[in-house]
Design a binder for these strands. Structure first.
Length: 342
DNA sequence: TATTCGTGGTA
DNA sequence: TTACCAAGAAT
């Protein structure tokens, strides 16, 4: 890999921040100020999620719950409704727990260091560093996918970013490069670079403001960075979704408190070996398909007769279930159901 | 340490 | 259709 001397580091900071001041995404709604609450909410939402997806969620969230106190005292179902469709729902629950921790345990006094911020639920090394640098000016790199990608190319770093151990390697390399005067802007500038000239696919390094610092581009090996080992493919799983209808209401089942879609309401789902057992009963010709990161669900809707209610089951009218926060897969099932004759 | 956790976009 | 992402954290 490449190494930069102090002079090069200073030139890089200046080049990066000059570009950021002119062409950075200053318009992003979470950049209107450095309120740690706004930064926290945005950073949690942005975990593994695209900026364009987050913007409308962030705007609605801040309109509904503008302060950390509002979030701390809100009913959980309100928070989950604001999060509906955004995925990784433990983020929403942990975010509220973090707000409650700040309000109730810290009496509204935010932790200001990266280390202390990690005591908040759902706040790990990246998010803590982002908040600490943006809101409290701590000189610390916010090592995320962008920093992996950008610096692996700039310095030809061969560490596998899929390996957990690589985080410390990158942290140690980037830490002395962070601008001591503007750490928050430095971290956000890397993000903007990673979303424009140094994207995963089709980077535009020839016209990048930091082209002169890009060793991988210089050597024609940019497509070799970052180094990342491949993950496993989603496992296929077959389900029967039971449709119980009574007095115009539909039966929903609350999923277990842990695991996939924890605590969310769906139709009762039964994993099956094959569709042979339900052939002729299913309402839909093709299954509803839903792909998670590690699972691929194929779900057949089956009309059932009224049965005994379990503790975790409940009938909801359309007005009632519309008010619930439902996962995307359940919305797909409902759409398929009403698209079919019923 | 490797796996688990959603969803939508794109080649 | 498949593969692979996109500002990670918890377990």
């Amino acid at each position: 890999m490449e190494t930069w001397n102090e002079q090069t580091i200073k030139e890089f900071r200046k080049t990066l921040l000059n570009w950021y001041d002119k062409e950075g995404r200053a318009h992003l709604p979470w950049r209107v100020n450095h309120d740690p609450y706004r930064v926290l909410v945005s950073e949690i939402m942005l975990q593994q999620t695209r900026v364009d997806t987050v913007i409308p969620y962030f705007d609605r969230f801040m309109t509904s719950l503008p302060t950390v106190g509002d979030l701390a005292t809100a009913p959980e179902d309100v928070v989950l409704k604001l999060w509906e469709g955004l995925g990784y729902y433990s983020r929403a629950r942990n975010l509220q727990k973090a707000a409650q921790f700040v309000v109730n345990e810290l009496h509204g006094q935010w932790p200001e260091s990266s280390d202390d911020l990690q005591s908040l639920p759902g706040v790990g090394p990246y998010t803590a560093a982002a908040i600490a640098s943006i809101s409290f000016n701590e000189v610390v790199p916010a090592v995320d996918g962008n920093q992996y990608r950008v610096f692996s190319r700039l310095l030809k770093i061969d560490a596998d970013i899929a390996d957990t151990k690589s985080r410390k390697i990158f942290y140690d390399i980037i830490a002395p490069i962070v601008d001591p005067e503007r750490p928050g802007d430095f971290n956000q500038a890397i993000m903007d670079l990673g979303s424009s000239y140094m994207t995963t696919k089709n980077p535009d390094s020839l016209y990048s403001p930091v082209r002169e610092f890009n060793a991988a581009f210089r050597d024609g090996v940019e497509d070799q960075y970052p180094v990342k080992t491949t993950k496993q493919r989603p496992v296929k799983q077959l389900f029967m979704a039971s449709v119980f209808e009574k007095d115009g209401k539909l039966l929903f089942e609350k999923r277990p408190d842990s695991g996939l879609l924890a605590g969310f309401w769906t139709f009762p789902l039964t994993q099956i070996e094959s569709i042979e057992s339900i052939t002729g009963q299913q309402l839909n010709i093709k299954p509803v398909t839903h792909i998670f990161t590690h699972r691929r669900w194929e779900i057949w809707l089956v009309k059932q007769e009224t049965a005994m209610l379990n503790d975790n089951q409940q009938y909801f009218s359309s007005d009632e279930w519309s008010a619930l926060s439902l996962p995307k897969v359940q919305h797909k099932l409902l759409e398929k159901l009403y698209d079919t004759e019923f």
